[in-house]
Design a protein around this nucleic acid. Structure first.
Lengths: 123, 123
DNA sequence: AACAATACTCTACATTTGTAGAAACAAAAA
DNA sequence: TTTTTGTTTCTACAAATGTAGAGTATTGTT
């Protein structure tokens, strides 16, 4: 099961807030905000799909994500890689560095990251 | 305008083949192959959306992509980055290196890539 | 206690997507 | 030339998605 684009948006807010009531989510939306019922519907669907759960506080629900952003994401990215780069992460990386117009500073940062990643794994 | 998942699949084949008749595309599909009419519908929709065009050969059409894979893709990835990493490519890269379980060799390759990228940009 | 603000469920409806049959037609094969 | 095969358009239809009104319950406010 998968989230639709809009549901993903709501998920985004949930990840950011960790937990939130309707109104918190609503106030995250930029104008023009969707109708409350729209968000309610989305939350219901997301709950049905098993991505979200909630704690009851009286009548109100405090929603929280059931999936970590990174987890959801790595699935996502892996699908992407599989689909577009015949399953080669390096190929993807290559594409990524050349096409994502990172600045030199960013690239250097990235290299640092990779270095520590390498050290990490060589342990 | 955007391609749906299945349309993306067909696009994939088109990118691979450069140009193709119905049957070529059809034969790319793994079993169970979809009905020809299904693929026909998809191609029509893709043409309508402006992602594909064709050359007529008698009655048959030789389809070809109007968008380069990398172009389509960078848009895609940029959307992804925007959506999930508050528009920070470095954040994404960081995620990418730590979560995509690349091997040391792959990481080293990647570093090499970044290095040349840096050199490239410093010019 | 009466009212206003909230949150939730139900219902609804237009679009988009996945999938394919039926019909039309042309090119290739028999 | 009659038949078969491939290709396309039309039509169809169910599921998913985006969006929200109506109605109902609840809680905070005068």
């Amino acid at each position: 099961m998968k989230l639709s684009k809009t549901e993903e948006q709501v998920m985004q807010y949930l990840w950011k807030l960790n937990k939130a009531f309707m109104k918190d989510i609503l106030s995250e939306f930029p104008s023009p905000k969707p109708a409350t019922t729209t968000v309610a519907t989305l939350l219901k669907r997301m709950t049905d799909k098993g991505f979200v759960n909630y704690k009851l506080y009286g009548k109100s629900r405090e929603y929280y994500p059931l999936i970590k952003k990174t987890d959801y994401f790595s699935k996502h990215v892996n699908g992407l890689i599989k689909n577009f780069f015949n399953n080669s992460a390096t190929q993807f990386a290559s594409f990524f560095t050349s096409e994502t117009n990172l600045s030199v500073t960013e690239l250097e940062e990235l290299r640092k990251l990779i270095d520590s990643q390498i050290k990490e794994q060589k342990k």
